[in-house]
Design a protein around this nucleic acid. Sequence first.
DNA 1: GATGAATGAGCATTCATTCAT
DNA 2: GATGAATGAATGCTCATTCAT
Lengths: 206, 206, 206, 206
Amino acid sequence: MSSPAPPTTARGEKRPLILQAATEVFAEQGFAAVTVAEIAERAGIGKGTVYEYFSSKEELLFAVFEWMNEAIFERIRGLLDEGGTARDRLRRLLELGAEFTAEQIDMQAVVLDFWAASRGTRSEERYNRSCLVTFRGYRGVLAEVVRDGQRAGELRAEVDAEAVAIMLLAAMDGLGVQIFFDREIDPRTTVAAFGEVVLAGLEVRR
Amino acid sequence: MSSPAPPTTARGEKRPLILQAATEVFAEQGFAAVTVAEIAERAGIGKGTVYEYFSSKEELLFAVFEWMNEAIFERIRGLLDEGGTARDRLRRLLELGAEFTAEQIDMQAVVLDFWAASRGTRSEERYNRSCLVTFRGYRGVLAEVVRDGQRAGELRAEVDAEAVAIMLLAAMDGLGVQIFFDREIDPRTTVAAFGEVVLAGLEVRR
Amino acid sequence: MSSPAPPTTARGEKRPLILQAATEVFAEQGFAAVTVAEIAERAGIGKGTVYEYFSSKEELLFAVFEWMNEAIFERIRGLLDEGGTARDRLRRLLELGAEFTAEQIDMQAVVLDFWAASRGTRSEERYNRSCLVTFRGYRGVLAEVVRDGQRAGELRAEVDAEAVAIMLLAAMDGLGVQIFFDREIDPRTTVAAFGEVVLAGLEVRR
Amino acid sequence: MSSPAPPTTARGEKRPLILQAATEVFAEQGFAAVTVAEIAERAGIGKGTVYEYFSSKEELLFAVFEWMNEAIFERIRGLLDEGGTARDRLRRLLELGAEFTAEQIDMQAVVLDFWAASRGTRSEERYNRSCLVTFRGYRGVLAEVVRDGQRAGELRAEVDAEAVAIMLLAAMDGLGVQIFFDREIDPRTTVAAFGEVVLAGLEVRR
DNA sequence: GATGAATGAGCATTCATTCAT
DNA sequence: GATGAATGAATGCTCATTCAT
């Protein structure tokens, strides 16, 4: 009450605390079911403080979404830097996706929420743009690898790289949803099996 | 009984009217953003009447979801009855999925809503079961066709049919989501291009 | 569906049926908690039919209240016709009250409801008048018996007969309420014991 | 802390304000007819604030009921501390009851409401227990005074003290109800007259 | 900066009543 | 007369957001 020393967190540095707490409760209960009071409690701060860092509950969801995607992108970049043939990189990208799905099934829920929370809101436009940009980012990476393989003569040149990128990303997203509802599916083996088929279909025949 | 044509709707028969109206507004604005009053207005009936046919707003969402899936399943069954090689049927299934996605992008929104609406609700269990059953239904159809092809020697026997079914369904779902946010994607050509790759990867090599 | 013979009740004679059903459900659950649909169902008729006989749910409560009081008054009149000294009649009136309370604890609930249902209603005035008239009726009977006893030299002349009537009626009403909440009280012995005290206090001393 | 006088009410101290406002409007219009918005308006606060202090409208009714009874009990305790013979204390208890009835006819309405509001509610059990406990409290006080008088040889030993207590309490309750509907009755003279009769009936004869 | 008491817009749901059949 | 499908007014309650301290 009168202790002069800061408790644990430095002043004005509660942002990651809130972000972490929000991510957790969003994952557990879903955006709509979560109250700002709950987020604050989980973060161990006052309700009003949340609004010092985020202008609204919705804004907080945006931040969580971006936070998650940044982390994923970072790992993708690291993976690509390792080099290898296009087939190798493609295989590793799929593995990474499977790993993410396996590790963070509840994160999948946050993404679902993000999609759904946008609807009918004032900021629907902004949500859509944010989703679009994110999707394009992932797609760009995938398509680039495919095109690399085509240029190198590894992969069939007549295949539409963009289409393959779209569908592979779609498959990874959709897999997360299915596993969210059916925990018996094993993402790693499923992705590996399907990946082999796709790679077989992509490679140049002699 | 003697009136030449029913002016609007007969008494006691407002169920499809409500279902249709609900599907529309759910698609347009999302479950959370829609009010029961809005649904009633769209259906041209009184607010209370909605509750004569559905015990709650949530129950109505369930009904819409099931209604949609039934319609889709019916078309799938029709498609499979046409026969053809496994490759033909697989190609046609993908085409059908693309067509659905193209035709009913807004339907995709209802599915998203259904997923998201489940979270943190009292009836979360029921939602999950409903989704699980639906997914398994689609997967079963796809896996069966693949296995048919394997038995007929058309498709490589060493491929995990279930994994392929999971991922193809996932890809179709995920495609819907991407198109929902990025209308520049053309589902038909994208699916066709990707389908060729997958089929190439599945077929038996000489 | 096409049977020409009336089922059980003659046409246009459903009034007592409704009255009986309403009395039962009001007693069981209270006026506010009962729906018109419930009353109709209990009476084995259609919801709309209730409105053929009573213009509103409130009106029905009025009718039930009056119905009950009429029955009680009838028994009081019969009791007074048996004659006897004022003390005898007073004692028998109290016995009758105890009996009613014992027999129809749930009826007590209807009276409670009637009191409470009036409040804040459009027809508050009418409720109050109805209660007032009923109370005055009972009080009149009691006061008359006391005055009879005073005129006959049985009971002390200096006692305010009206005050005694008011308080005895009040005691019987209040007893019903207490028993409604505390079923361990036996109305007959309680009233008998108190009645002896009051009669001892009323009688002329030598 | 340094402001000379609080303008309206300090933060976090709106409980008595709400209790007072609720008591007033409940008395005026009855529990069922009152809206939470009305209570808030009367208290000069926002609707949501009511729910900061009471978890539901029903809970508020409970609080009002207990508040009232506490106040009454306090005065009863003060009265008994004054001492005197059993007859004196009994007479004073009846006088106090008459006074309460005269002063707070509208309070009577709240009690009626409380009784009636219980019916058919989920918390019916709790209502009944609350009423039972309250009744037993009043009865205990009355019975104890009578037994004191019997032990002191003032009052007839063969009289059932508990029965007298039950009926006197009942009479006071019932009086309140009658006066609520018939303002011409004067509680003080009525109770005094009846009290003399009962005391005469209770006292030991030579 | 941090807090949490106060706020009120917003909405699902109930149910008495009507009226076409 | 009898019916019950249709209706919409009415209200308790939640919770994101504000702002005085």
